[in-house]
């Protein structure tokens, strides 16, 4: 996963430089090829939300997802309590999910959770060790939500719109 991110960053910087060069036909062609590779690379698929199959929704907006992961929304529309799972703050998947899907820096999420738990006014999500554990736990617990790159039995992948 991380090697793809590195390649992607490299491509991105190449693309940024290319337009500043003289527009010879050779460079135009290589620029086009680079763009193709970039769009085709697996990184563009991104992380997705994972919910237990009991969760009665099919899509969430970025704001709704942020309200769930900042522990503000505590129930699904059918009244079922929400249990939120995350990976460690330093986990690459957590950083990617936080920035790309929620549009929040990981340290800001941590600040919000810390404000909750140390003031007694709320909870923090439950931290798990790996993506595999995340899928396994979510498959067994009704109303639970997390994120992953892949699906599994008894869980659904949900896109953030």
């Amino acid at each position: 996963m991380s090697s793809f991110i590195n390649i992607d960053k490299h491509l991105f910087s190449t693309i940024l430089i290319v337009p500043h060069l003289k527009n010879t036909s050779m460079e135009r062609i290589s620029f086009f090829i680079l763009c193709l590779i970039c769009f085709a690379s697996p990184i563009s698929q991104g992380v997705e939300l994972v919910v237990n199959s009991s969760v009665p929704i099919s899509s969430l907006s970025a704001t709704e997802a942020r309200n769930i992961f900042t522990m503000r929304t505590q129930q699904w529309p059918d009244g079922q309590p929400i249990t939120v799972f995350v990976l460690n703050d330093d986990n690459p998947l957590h950083k990617q999910f936080s920035k790309e899907n929620l549009h929040v820096f990981p340290y800001k999420l941590r600040r919000i959770w810390d404000r909750n738990i140390y003031s007694g006014t709320g909870d923090a999500p439950i931290t798990l060790d790996s993506e595999e554990e995340m899928i396994e736990v979510i498959s067994t617990l009704a109303g639970s939500i997390g994120y992953a790159n892949k699906g599994g039995d008894n869980v659904r992948l949900i896109k953030i719109q």
């Binding site: 249990t83 799972f85 738990i117 909870d123 923090a124 439950i126 798990l128 736990v137 617990l141 639970s144």
Partner: peptide
């Protein structure tokens, strides 16, 4: 269990 509602934190 890990996914119970019981949480302990400290600093």
């Amino acid at each position: 269990e890990k996914f119970d509602t019981f949480q302990v934190h400290g600093f």
